[in-house]
């Protein structure tokens, strides 16, 4: 069990960054400037005709000659609107509809099936296969344009809903005051992080920290200033950790937990000592003037290898016991296992 410590006490590379739960739903899934339509038809005339019509209306168009090709195009570049012919060699429109519905995509794909026939059976079969709408060929440009507008309306609605759901999910694991994760996230994700490092025999560090005499700040300067202190404390902690790897959660009151995956005990102790200094060295600027604040830190770690594999509760309990020692020894200090 000689796992290398994968992290040496880091320098101030992360300084100034605030560790907040990531807000999903930006960048990769942003609404494109122009809507992209995938046109699927085995006949080059039909493809070119639709392409010309759609481009005239400002759509970006990509084309495919059959369902199989369409799936390849979609894998390479996501398209929210798909306009597909029904009868095609290799993979027809119905199979394509089923294949698209059978997979997970970035967001909803609005499918319009083009058919030469207008029988009720065909329409029902198409809708059953997952098409949202159908058009009878030859398609009049004005009708095509109107149907695509309907599709865009539905896609826009779906996007709004998805973004809101993401925001709600984010808020559910975020501490509203400090913007870091909350206790619920900690209890849900620490076991997951531990399971992951255990699989690879990697270490994981845990720092539990608590502001010293925080009650006095609240009592003498008021809760609003207390909140300012908590926010500044969070900023200082968050600025010292690796973004996207380490994370911070507020467990309640003035107690926080910093989770450092891939960091062993020595590395975690080094981080805690740096944080202690960072908090104590400079007074916190508040609306009530500068406030001197200190914090105590309890450090525990899952060592590399397999011998010692504490679960989340046990690791939290170890860190908590060390935090208690740090408090008992006079506060403004770091305590690790075995009085280190």
């Amino acid at each position: 069990m000689s796992g290398q410590p994968t992290r040496v006490a880091a320098d101030g590379a992360g300084e100034g960054r605030v560790l907040t739960p990531p807000c999903h739903g930006d960048l990769q899934t942003a609404v494109p400037d122009a809507w992209t339509v995938l046109v699927v038809d085995d006949h080059p005339v039909a493809r070119r005709l639709l392409e010309a019509q759609l481009e005239r209306e400002g759509y970006l168009v990509i084309t495919a000659a059959n369902g199989r090709e369409a799936l390849e195009r979609l894998s390479g570049r996501f398209c929210p609107l798909v306009l597909t012919d029904w009868m095609m060699p290799e993979m027809d429109g119905l199979e394509l509809c089923r294949a698209i519905r059978g997979r997970e995509w970035d967001s909803y794909i609005y499918l319009i099936l083009l058919t030469a026939r207008d029988s009720l059976d065909d329409v029902l079969m198409g809708l059953e296969a997952g098409a949202d709408d159908y058009l009878v060929k030859p398609v009049h440009p004005m009708e095509l344009s109107a149907r695509l507008r309907t599709g865009r309306r539905i896609l826009a609605l779906e996007r709004t809903l998805r973004d809101r759901n993401r925001e709600i999910a984010r808020l559910a694991v975020t501490d509203p005051l400090t913007g870091v994760y909350n206790r619920r996230y900690l209890m849900e994700n620490l076991p997951r992080e531990l399971a992951r490092v255990r699989r690879y025999g990697h270490p994981l560090g845990l720092i539990m920290c608590d502001l010293d005499h925080f009650k006095e700040v609240n009592d003498t300067l008021g809760h609003a200033v207390g909140d300012e202190v908590l926010k500044e404390f969070t900023r200082r902690l968050a600025g010292q950790v690796r973004q996207g790897v380490d994370w911070l959660a507020r467990c309640g009151g003035e107690e926080f937990v910093l989770v450092l995956p891939e960091t062993d005990l020595a590395g975690s102790l080094a981080v805690a000592r740096r944080l202690r200094h960072l908090v104590a060295a400079t007074p916190f600027a508040t609306t009530a003037g500068p406030v001197r604040v200190t914090a105590s830190f309890g450090v525990a770690a899952r060592p590399p290898g397999e011998a010692d594999s504490p679960d989340a509760e046990a690791l939290l309990a170890r860190a908590d016991a060390c935090l208690y020692q740090a408090k008992a020894a006079g506060r403004n200090r770091v305590a690790g296992p075995g009085g280190r």
Binding site: D42, M87, A116
Partner: peptide, 14 residues
């Protein structure tokens, strides 16, 4: 059937 169908559709479109 397949080829004739494809031809029919394209011809109608044109």
């Amino acid at each position: 059937r397949h080829q004739a169908h494809s031809l029919k559709g394209a011809a109608a479109g044109l």
